[in-house]
Nucleic acid binder design. Structure first.
Lengths: 346, 346
DNA sequence: ATTAGCACTCACCCTTGAGGAGTGCTAATT
DNA sequence: AATTAGCACTCCTCAAGGGTGAGTGCTAAT
């Protein structure tokens, strides 16, 4: 969006949004002059506001009400008015460090905690998505005999994700068979991403089944089955807190948001659509392709492992959120996670 | 509660509750005679209702309104009026079988699915709690070297619960050390419950540290650390659906219930308090020791593994729920799970 | 270019009053 | 003695009406 506003208009837009973030009532011209000590009279402000409305940055709920920011207004605010220097949120960093660093846990635990911490500091919803199969590098695969006719497959990746699955031991593999298969799989696939392994397996099996000896064939079949269900986990926390916000005094909105939370599938879809660039991204209201979230804003960022985007961390809240502090929270959390995985992967 | 009512009063109480379950408006005398084709006039019904109110089974929101069942009324209804023959819900059984049986999954997946299915059939909240450390029997413990200085501990229990934890390898154990330790732990503790092992470990370590050789000491320390976090998982699903009920048109109630859902700790406490007898239990409104749930009813049942209560399955809903069908759903789910673990444990 | 003045709009809140569902009581009926 | 009809009474619900006030847009003065 081009930077089309003069300084004075920017200030007014800023004041309106600031006031609206503070308190979701339509903002009047008189209030702006008083609260933000403008040098102009309410009448002048009214003219400016009328211009801003013409340009689509503000709107009126009804003729004789004050103005409310539009999505376009928020967008302009985020891009051109907000302070560029978004700092690191030290409080969040301290909290995360104290919560997560001491006992070394797996990724799901860390992400759940991060999501909760983001939720509690922002008072909105915390969101975290674990690394998907695309970028996760296999560290180790372990086959453990389990009960008479089953095998527990445990997959460990570089990020510390542990997935497990119990599969049927239809081929009656013995304990030592399993040992051999594990060794083979580890030798063959360690260091590849889950996605690569999947593709590789699909191809191998298609190409020529007879090419390999029996044990190897079994290994591949096992591995395929275990990797089949490998996907991202989504953590969304903080519903209770968000219900205190005045915009959720309306049942319909609560329903929408709780549906969004339960249907984590939609979130993954959203994230797939959105994650192309790195850094913190801001999705405001109707910019969101998921229509259920058109009344919400989403601030997300990828976090990296070895400079490769792994998963996503973010905050979901009302459109009138305190963008600068939320962006700083998300930025901080993303850096924290990236650093954590950097260290962990050494 | 004693069976203190004559047939006629029972019928009236039944009619009031039935009507109230159908539609949460206070029930009037005229409505009862019409809808349920009573042989008496509204005036007679009024007299009976006044008696029921004196006994505490009904109450009036205000002088000129109809009656509403009290918790005591529901309790009497459940104990003395409800059909005793609670059948198995075939639809649920079919659904569960199709969802859960085919791929052999671990307990957490099965419980999550069961909870979702209960939620969708009842239109209330589905609840499932995985087996805790008390009764879970260790099947296998596996130590896998993970990255340079860490070990992944994987614990498999009889029910198919898999817990994993990553711990620091502070003692610089080699891969073959780990192998030896696993072997030792499996030999020593297989067949014991997690709780027993915990207690055993605590005692061993307290008694005499020098009594054992170095490796064994290390094993025990590792094992202790890994078992430390072993606890029940709680699955609660179906929030979206429950918001459609008229009793949750009130924000305060939504807040309460969402708090209850997020604070799974409270649920575990509730369940600990309540689970003394087997079979389906009904907790109505204020009977619930957790005060946040005083406007809700909870129907729960334990499910067994080898005739030993393992975890809990249930439904949480408004007090005016259709008790007979909900009880039947919970009963069916509990039997299904018990059977599933019976087979799985063979 | 800015501002004061003013008529106008419209949501919000409060009051009022009609309507109606339901009750309790009493007296009549079976 | 139990049941029922009749009736006065209660009190919730809802819609209509009117006052209030915040806020606007326009015009004319500064």
């Amino acid at each position: 969006m081009e930077d089309v506003l003069d300084e004075r208009s920017k200030k007014v837009l800023w004041a309106v949004i600031q006031s609206y973030i503070d308190n979701p009532d339509p903002v009047g011209s008189r209030y702006v002059t008083k609260k933000y000590a403008f040098q102009y009279s309410p009448a002048t402000i009214r003219n400016i506001m009328a211009d801003l409305e013409d340009m689509g940055f503000l709107s009126q709920p009804h003729t004789s009400a004050g103005r409310v920011p539009t999505d376009k207004g928020y967008r302009y605010y985020v891009e051109h008015i907000l302070e560029e220097k978004i700092g690191i949120n030290e409080g969040l960093l301290d909290l995360l460090t104290s919560k997560v660093s001491d006992p070394i846990e797996d990724v799901d635990f860390i992400l759940d905690e991060t999501s909760k911490t983001l939720a509690s500091l922002s008072r909105y919803l915390g969101l975290a998505v674990s690394p998907g199969p695309e970028g996760s590098i296999l560290r180790r695969i372990e086959l453990v005999p389990y009960k008479e006719d089953r095998i527990a497959v445990v997959i460990l990746t570089d990020e510390g994700v542990i997935k497990h699955k119990i599969i049927k031991n239809e081929m009656a593999l013995t304990s030592s068979d399993l040992q051999k298969i594990s060794n083979y799989l580890n030798r063959e696939f360690k260091g590849y991403t889950i996605k690569q392994i999947r593709e590789h397996l699909a191809e191998e099996l298609r190409r020529d089944k007879e090419m390999y000896d029996n044990l190897m064939e079994r290994s591949l079949a096992l591995c395929r089955e275990a990797l089949y269900t490998y996907g991202s986990n989504v953590f969304i926390t903080g519903l209770t807190r968000i219900l205190d916000l005045p915009e959720f005094s309306n049942i319909e909105k609560i329903k929408k948001i709780s549906k969004t939370i339960e249907d984590k599938h939609a979130i993954i879809k959203l994230i797939d659509k959105i994650i192309d660039s790195r850094g913190v991204q801001v999705i405001i209201g109707s910019e969101n392709p998921v229509s259920e979230m058109n009344e919400l804003s989403v601030i997300i960022s990828t976090y990296n492992e070895h400079d490769r985007p792994a998963g996503v961390i973010g905050i979901i809240g009302p459109k009138r959120m305190d963008y600068s502090s939320v962006i700083s929270l998300v930025e901080t959390a993303a850096r924290f996670l990236s650093k954590m995985f950097e260290e962990g992967g050494k």
